[in-house]
């Protein structure tokens, strides 16, 4: 988990580097340091035997919860049964209406379930990455038949040019 976290901050560094070359140089040092230290953790491996598995589960719970923040798709699942007056003005429900918004959300839920099924089944999990590509196909060619561009914009998902 630390590795993922380390990678994330490293990426963030580079992204905020705003294409300034000396910034990039600096990040290379960071990357090097991170990986050198990762290599050094060979010595700490025996310490891991003191780490209870439930603590790892707790960290996973936290990461899973944290990834949900800012995800409008998951938020729309909750919003599907919220009162319109209590939702913000710019909420897609005001453009699409509850029913159509729920259709869009349901399509996403099914995509997620499909991906999950592919991932869980060890016979198909090797093809799992290709299924993510299918989602792009679905969004680019299939969904525009049912939703207008205005509705996509309201959902925060404008069609790429």
């Amino acid at each position: 988990m630390n590795h993922v976290r380390a990678l994330t901050s490293q990426k963030f560094d580079e992204e905020t580097g705003e294409m300034v070359i000396d910034k990039v140089c600096e990040t290379r040092t960071t990357g090097f340091a991170i990986h050198a230290m990762l290599a050094a953790t060979i010595y700490l491996l025996p310490l891991l035997t003191c780490l209870p598995i439930p603590v790892v589960s707790g960290v996973f719970l936290y990461l899973g919860r944290k990834l949900m923040t800012g995800n409008t798709f998951l938020k729309r699942i909750v919003d599907s049964c919220s009162e319109v007056g209590r939702l913000p003005q710019e909420h897609p429900i005001n453009v699409l209406g509850r029913r159509k918004m729920n259709v869009f959300t349901t399509i996403q839920v099914f995509s997620l379930a499909g991906l999950w099924a592919f991932k869980q089944n060890s016979a198909t999990s090797i093809f799992f990455p290709a299924v993510i590509g299918l989602l792009m196909v679905l969004r680019t060619w299939v969904l525009p038949r049912f939703f207008s561009e205005e509705e996509f914009i309201a959902l925060g998902d404008p069609t790429p040019q």
Binding site: I53, P54, V56, S57, G58, F60, L61, L63, G64, R65, L67, M68, N71, T72, F73, L74, Q108, S111, L112, L115, W116, K119, I132, L135, M136, L138, R139, T140, L143, L155, G156, D157, P158, T159, P160
Partner: peptide, 28 residues
Amino acid sequence: IRYCTRFTDEVFNGLLSVNFLYEACVSL
């Protein structure tokens, strides 16, 4: 990657999130 819009992004992120929660729950 621009064809990968928010639609795909959020499903993918949801998947990552569900994956973490699932692993934690399975282990408990």
